[in-house]
Design a protein around this nucleic acid. Structure first.
Lengths: 257, 257
DNA sequence: CGCCTCCTTGAAGTGCCTCAAATAATGTGG
DNA sequence: CCACATTATTTGAGGCACTTCAAGGAGGCG
């Protein structure tokens, strides 16, 4: 647990200047001592030598709600992996239309770029702490760190698979199908992180959900109340959903209405 | 005999179903002699030793129009790179709704999977010849082929960037914006392959375009005629588009109508 | 020539959006 | 801790972009 390392104090200071660029006040060799990711961690399962190489370049930052980690067009200097909290990434159109292309939680990895520039903006949803890896230095590691290189590739392919799924959702699913898919996906990812499946926390607002699903906030809200009235779920508060009938939601999500 | 280069076990049967699983009748050492990809090629720029390793496992197949290369759920044994022709990949819902998630042309690379199974179906649009790489053997190469590993990662990150763009299109763009974006993207990719920018060939049918853009074929057709009437383009035949005013199309694509 | 498939065009319907306002949740200073 | 200000969410009414249903052209091929 974190007692041994003074995260709290530094954390408070970080809030003032709102971001923390140091190594969380820790010695980089100890960087992972308080990392609670376990086998979720990007660095989990690396051979000792590769692990040490990665730890030598790893950093740790915090971000406050709505704080921007990087903007579309910024140099893609880092890969990020949240230790806690939630992050959204999105693209904007000139007239302000927004499409959120991903949410990232504990253990996820984001920041990939094929050309050295970020193609999207990343913004913290809640107070978030993140592990950060400089890509230039990681690339120097790759030739002598095949497991690491494989893991980066694997993570990017996982993201590709998510996009295939999300593309189907955006292009061909109705609003209820979108919402059902979204709630089940949140629930499933919570389970994968070791959290509970059913009272699921929805850390992002309706507006974020809408911009992720290609809907408006009104349609999101209406569809959720429809689900509630149908007894499929409960909404003790706007950011908590209890899935009363996951099987029925699954059927809706897959178009079996 | 093909045993040494370990091509499909179903090689003989494949010929009957109009697919050639041999090395295009060539000796594997000569595999790239007739490859016309040049610097588009996935294997372009590899150090000699890595190149030889890749050539030793490389194979070559052909597919006829509408022929399936693999189905959703099939083991993901190969990465594919078309030498000529065009391929679409798509996901299906239980009721038949379809979302095409990608088109692939000369020099592109597809078939990535994070879990050993294909998450989508791949189908040839036109007569297509493809270079094929067995992923299991490629993975054995990675530790001693860092450039190859990097290139695979780079290609997958390029696909990720495409998905970010396409997600914005599906979630937030209107039908005219979608079509304009699509036509410009086709044109740009043609240029990248060394083809002409303006009389662009559209190898896929309206139904494929619709399922790629999250529209119906009627809307695709109507929008194209609207563009034609506006003088933005010409349609000498359904599968050829001459972009008369690319700048105006660009403005439409980006929401600046 | 006739059949088939693909594309285009027309007319009507609808799911989601837009605009508008009420209600609930959240934060703030006294 | 409360009154108030602010923001987020929900709910309602009407409109529109795209879909659905239906039919008419336009090649392509035996």
């Amino acid at each position: 647990m974190a007692g041994r390392i003074a995260l709290g104090v530094d954390g408070d200071r970080a809030i003032q200047d709102s971001r923390f660029r140091e190594n969380c006040g820790r010695d980089s060799n100890d960087a992972c001592l308080q990392c609670n990711l376990g086998d979720l961690a990007f660095c989990h399962g690396l051979p000792a030598s590769e692990f040490r190489g990665l730890m030598a370049i790893q950093g740790c930052i915090r971000a406050t709600p709505q704080e921007t980690l990087f903007n579309e067009g910024d140099p893609a200097n880092y890969l990020y992996s949240p230790l806690s909290g939630a992050v959204k990434i999105y693209k904007l159109m000139a007239d302000g239309r927004r499409q959120i292309t991903g949410f990232f939680f504990r253990g996820d990895l984001f920041g990939f770029s094929p050309n050295g520039l970020h193609g999207y903006t990343a913004e913290a949803i809640t107070m978030t702490s993140l592990c950060r890896f400089p890509v230039a230095k990681m690339e120097q590691l790759y030739p002598n760190a095949p497991t690491l290189a494989r893991e980066v590739l694997r993570r990017s392919m996982i993201k590709l698979a998510h996009f295939h799924e999300h593309t189907l959702l955006l292009g061909r699913k109705s609003a209820p199908e979108k919402l059902a898919s979204f709630l089940l996906s949140l629930s499933q990812r919570a389970v994968e992180r070791g959290d509970s499946a059913s009272p699921v926390l929805i850390p992002m607002g309706r507006s974020d959900v809408a911009d992720y699903l290609g809907l408006t906030i009104e349609t999101v809200s209406r569809t959720l109340t429809k689900f509630k009235v149908s007894g499929l779920l409960e909404l003790p508060n706007p950011s908590t959903v209890a899935l009363r009938d996951p099987a029925a939601l699954r059927q809706i999500a897959d178009g079996g209405f």
